[in-house]
Simulated scan of single mutants.
Amino acid sequence: MSTITEPPPSPIPLFTTVKAYREWRRRAYDERKSVGFVPTMGALHEGHMSLVRRSLAENDLTVLSIFVNPAQFAPHEDLATYPRTLPKDIELLMAESFNDTNTSTTRQASGIFLPTANEMYPSGISQDVNEQKGTFIEVKGYGHQMEGVSRPTFFRGVATVVTKLFNAIEPTNAYFGQKDIQQALLLKRMVRDLLLSHPDPEHVHIVPTARNPTTGLALSSRNAYLTTDGHKVAPTLIQALQAAEQAWGEGLTKAECVQKATEVVDATKRRAQAEGLNAEMKLDYIQLNDSQTFEIIEPQSSKADISHPVILSGALWIDKTRLIDNIILGDINTVIG
């Protein structure tokens, strides 16, 4: 199982082995150049590019990884059909640049780390956790809430692959999107707990979610799975979260906020049925969690009862596509930095 077969011709250096990349990285060390890192599974879109722009602006060199990680897909999930669009990804990266007026230089992506599954998992890898062998990373006590309820092995796979990527890339700075807020915060904690230096916790950056400017839909590679009718109802999730956000700001309880969000989803279902749209919607969850512990906020709690920010998040199935999104209730800067 591998991410690619034959890499296409590319003006951006492609590194398919850790050894080849580390030779390049040593030169960057010798030249005292900072390296920004954007880990991805490919199928790049504007959300990824917002991370790339941030890295280009803040680092001498920028490296992306493109690796569809088997360890974060459960056996029933969409590993085989996950979109793989490497030639298009390279084109997008080539079109992106940053003009540094201080040095009168233009920066573009410096390299793509493009490993196979065998390179990343020398002991082999299975999507079935019970069949896996080798070394894996868990962040105890922080992965079973929120997304972890629906995807119980997901964060084990994420923590493992990102640890490997950090060890291989040795980035000065790393960039993650707020759309995957639990993942990003968990990785900041992991970096701190494992005493990593490349990057250290202060240099794991969380970048606000990139959205469709018209609908507010959070950009995701999985949006490519949506049908035409699916796209019409896809903004329902952020609209539901915004209804809960407004209710929270008005002092309603957590239970009442969730109810407001659920009503938005139910109303869209009725409208879609009345309009004859072919898009089956199923709400996975709407939840409010403590931004520090991820523990669920009590049903009768309200804004007046909690002094620090709360993560309002949700997941919505549209046909076979699962959308996720979140809003930070409170001072977002104290959460994403």
Rank of each mutant, 00 (worst) to 15 (best):
T17H: 07
N118R: 13
M1G: 08
G143E: 12
L93E: 05
T227D: 01
T163E: 00
N102D: 12
E170P: 01
T40F: 02
G36T: 12
V139D: 09
P152S: 03
T135I: 14
I328H: 12
L187W: 12
P9T: 13
F37P: 06
T81G: 11
E170G: 01
L237Y: 14
I90R: 13
L329S: 05
L185I: 14
T214N: 09
T153E: 10
E6Q: 10
Q259S: 07
M49K: 12
A174N: 04
K269M: 12
Q178H: 03
G157I: 05
L252R: 13
S301Q: 15
H144C: 12
R107E: 02
Q292I: 11
E202Y: 04
S110F: 09
D229H: 15
K19P: 11
G276V: 04
L51G: 04
A184M: 07
Q287S: 11
E119L: 02
S110E: 13
N167R: 12
M41T: 02
I332S: 15
L196F: 05
S307N: 14
N59T: 10
F176S: 07
C257G: 08
E6Y: 00
A28H: 06
V258N: 01
F136R: 05
L252V: 01
A267L: 04
R271W: 10
V233E: 01
P208L: 05
R32I: 03
G216F: 13
D331P: 10
K232N: 11
W317L: 09
S104M: 11
D266V: 03
N102H: 14
L64A: 06
D193A: 09
A244T: 07
T3K: 01
H203I: 01
L241H: 01
V52S: 07
N99I: 14
L114V: 08
I238V: 11
D331R: 14
T262M: 02
A304Q: 11
G249V: 04
D60T: 04
R107Q: 08
I318T: 06
H48I: 05
E58L: 08
H231F: 07
P39R: 03
P8I: 06
I169V: 15
N173D: 02
V158H: 05
P7Y: 12
S2K: 09
A224F: 00
T116A: 12
M146T: 08
Y285E: 02
A261H: 00
T268M: 15
T62E: 13
F113S: 10
M94N: 06
L277H: 09
A80C: 00
L329Y: 09
D100M: 08
L217Q: 05
G216Y: 11
T17A: 06
G230K: 00
E170V: 02
Y21V: 14
E138W: 02
R189P: 03
I4F: 15
A279H: 14
D30F: 07
V335C: 11
E250S: 06
R32V: 06
H231Q: 13
T293R: 01
S104N: 13
A159Y: 08
N102A: 13
T209A: 01
P201V: 03
E202S: 15
N333T: 15
D30L: 14
T253G: 08
A279M: 13
R22H: 08
